[in-house]
Design a protein around this nucleic acid. Structure first.
Length: 105
DNA sequence: AACCTGACTTCGG
DNA sequence: TCCGAAGCCAGGT
């Protein structure tokens, strides 16, 4: 409808529960664009603070934070650990426990 | 206004 | 199994 991909992604990200994580492709696919994973990243850049999105709950397909080891990276990791998400020695997240599965409409 | 890049993912060789 | 290219859309230069 009138909802854009951008808008839809925002809604989905906002729906991610505390202590869970989602992948770009997962969100993109759920928003209607299986190949629009990049746009999901731009939505976060564009409206993360604006829409107060839990951007830290979005990780790449490897269960690993996409950012390099900069301040944002450490902040994302810290926020996730704060919510109960545990990282292994390789700093990757166990999807078996923390991967969020979008509720069906 | 046009070109390039970007917090990605998936397919093909 | 590893490497390269394509696809998606918006924002920045």
């Amino acid at each position: 409808m009138s909802s854009t991909f951008h808008q839809r992604v925002v809604e989905i990200i906002k729906a991610i529960p505390c202590g869970k994580v989602a992948t770009y492709g997962q969100i993109a696919a759920y928003a209607g664009n299986p190949s629009g994973a990049r746009q999901v990243a731009w939505v976060l850049h564009s409206s993360s603070e604006k829409n107060d999105l839990p951007w830290h709950r979005v990780v790449n397909r490897n269960g690993r934070i996409s950012l390099k080891e900069n301040l944002d990276y450490q902040q994302q990791k810290a926020l996730l650990e704060q919510e109960g998400v545990q990282f292994d020695s390789q700093d990757n997240i166990d999807f078996d426990q923390y991967l969020w599965i979008p509720a069906p409409m």
